[in-house]
Design a protein around this nucleic acid. Sequence first.
RNA 1: GCCCGGGUGGCGGAAUUGGUAGACGCAGCGGACUUAAAAUCCGCUGGCCGAAAGGCCGUGCCGGUUCGAGUCCGGCCCUGGGCACCA
Length: 816
Amino acid sequence: MSTPYKPEVVEASAQRHWREARSFEVDEDPDKEKFYCLTMFPYPSGKLHMGHVRVYTISDVIARYQRMQGKHVLQPMGWDAFGMPAENAAFKHGVPPARWTYANIGEMRAQLDRLGYAYDWSREITTCRPDYYRWEQWLFTRMFDKGLVYRKNSIVNWDPVDQTVLANEQVIDGRGWRSGAPVERREIPQWFMRITAYADELLEELDRMPGWPDSVKTMQRNWIGRSEGVELSFDVEGEDQPLTVYTTRPDTLMGVTFMAVAAEHPLAARAAKDDPGIAAFIDECLQTDASEATLETMEKKGMPLGISAVHPLSGEDVPLWVANFVLMSYGTGAVMAVPGHDERDWEFAKKHGLPIKQVIAPAGGAEIDIQEQAFVDRGVLVNSGEYDGLDFDAAFDAIAERFEETGRGRRAVNYRLRDWGVSRQRYWGAPIPIIYCDDCGAVPVPEEDLPVVLPEDVDVTGAGSPLRDMPEFVDVACPTCGEDARRETDTFDTFVESSWYFARYACPDADTAMLDERAAYWTPVDQYTGGIEHAILHLLYSRFFQRVMRDEGLTEVSEPFARLLTQGMVLKDGAKMSKNKGNVVDPQELIGKYGADTVRLFMMFAAPPEQSLEWSDEGVQGSYRFLKRFWNAVADHMAAGPVAALDVAALNDEQKALRRKTHRTIRKIDDDLGRRSSFNTAVAAAMELLNAVNRMQDDSDAGRAVVHEALEAVVLMLSPMTPHICHALWLELGHSTPVIDRRWPEIDASALELDTVELVVQVNGKLRGRVQVPACADEDAIGQLAAADENVRRFVEGNEIRKVIVVPGRLVNIVV
RNA sequence: GCCCGGGUGGCGGAAUUGGUAGACGCAGCGGACUUAAAAUCCGCUGGCCGAAAGGCCGUGCCGGUUCGAGUCCGGCCCUGGGCACCA
């Protein structure tokens, strides 16, 4: 009698083996083909959630599959350890963020180990450790020297009651999350990284990244938002400086009937000095949070400034407005408005009684009424004087040239992408390595003084960074002149840490350089897996940082991630699992009840990886039942005594059929795991094969031999998904080499061959019958066999056959 | 508002390049085993008509292309992600 399946025993034993054999620690072996398999590292919140389990299981399956292909696989893990939750917890519980964070890391590491992931823990990274963040401080100072970082004013959400800067997440319906006070937009000086210097390269390389999903590449293209247009200068009455605007539609220039500037624009500020109404309107514009979604969805409002610009072609006066939909951060903070040919301008003009002028007509000559609806397509110029009759391209060139000749404008490429603001007015982050001196200005901290260590023993009050009140941190001598100076108290955006950690896993202990020669062996990452929510920011910043490191001579790699898989969320009752909704399922509990393999199997089986996964307690039980059946199938098979060697020449039809199923399944699962990342169908195929094995009632030597072959194949192929039970079953099947060190099963091509194939017969595209035909039959013979089918004849008789379409191996369609 | 996804039985999903819609699993129903229950095993399971053979309908909605559309094209509806300080 065999022992029943006990996951807790099986899993402890397999994990002990991996630990003692150091199965997952890898070095740099130039003779082996490397495979670097990485997941987006977690924020150490303290508890693993189902989203973590899903993404880490996906990655682990890929890592283990690639190992079975003979690759030298690195799968590291670490902690994205800086961030707001630690400050919030500190504020709430009075624990310093560092202590809270390190405690959480300990708990989460144990949880990950319980799931049996194949991590090389010797390379663990914790981003809040000085030996990690010192290198991003160092890179920042290098970027400073190259002019890749600079300081400028930019907008933040300001809570006027708590006197603190709020993250967008901390603004609820325009109010501070703790104070409830209406949030204001406020300008403060902040540090920026010049990602726009790499805009073209980041854009163009997307065309040469076959390993990334098209959707992510499209999102990044649109985010970078390259456009070709013209910069035009409009003289403004009473101003020395002209007002410059950028437009992608210079062909509509003669249709400009007003202009608008952002609330923060200097012209608006000047007008506000003499006009309390304008001042009040600008104040009102600033009473919103700074997110683009808010700005784009709020009611479009504006006010005339009482001054005019001069139209550069017609010389007519163009009234100047201040409007809440113009963004100071995009382009020049001013726009020319063409209500006839722009949706938003049209609505604004209608609302405020501004003129709407048609200057573009449809190329086809169709009649339009510009007063009813804006015409935004490209067309032919009208009402534009000497430019009448030109199409878009000709008008673009003619107008651009005219401005270039007079020096009042130029062709310009513009990007939607903005430089990356990295300053955060928070404590729990990497200090920005800058010292402010009254005489020398902003001075980067010299390399020998790095890292600038964040003091870890602090009291968090919730109102601003505690660093500001720590003279021992702030007061410092200027590195240039030695006079009294002040240290920067802002810290880096946590995206800075996650923009280069993937490279550091190659050499986490390098203490004389950011990266060493080991990075040349491991990078780029061959397979990167993480949430679709990171499709733009994290992935774009990482691509940027990789290039900055390249240009610093640290690596020759430009693209950090060769292949990308973006996995969907885990839902319960149609909603994302969250404490607020009370629909959280704790992985720990489930692992205690069913074991890690059941949880892993369910995660892989329940949905394709890119799609959201609907949690189901019954589905988990189904996975558990399958593993019990799997266990019993192997145990029963082995309990029946020794298995004879397989003699393929001596098989009957049923035995041949099982062998065919075995080798077809190997081919399918290999394709599903290796090429398609289709784990759910891989599991289904393994289940089908096991069902076929269980249906086989054949105690003959040959019958037991083909069953043995099938069971070995299932154990090997499921071992990436359920590694613990497969570890045990492989030993049970009589092997001494553990399954972790085995290769993927070989396909016997001769087992796949078939004498006859079944074809579907259609008449006019509708299924009417099935026929068995020899595998080698030609189209005429197939057509005749198909037409001979009794049911097919009923639909063909009395009609003329117009065409017979044969799709080899699939179907015959008779068109009558 | 803008950008990118998704929508198929009672449920999760399959259908890989335009070629058998519903693989695999869950739930349900029927049966075996059991004193009984649990567990396990076997069978059935998109809707409608039919005794059966078989037929008709069916992949969010409307229209189109094709011998053939879940898959391609046009227009809509619903829903998820992102929108630069959540990570």
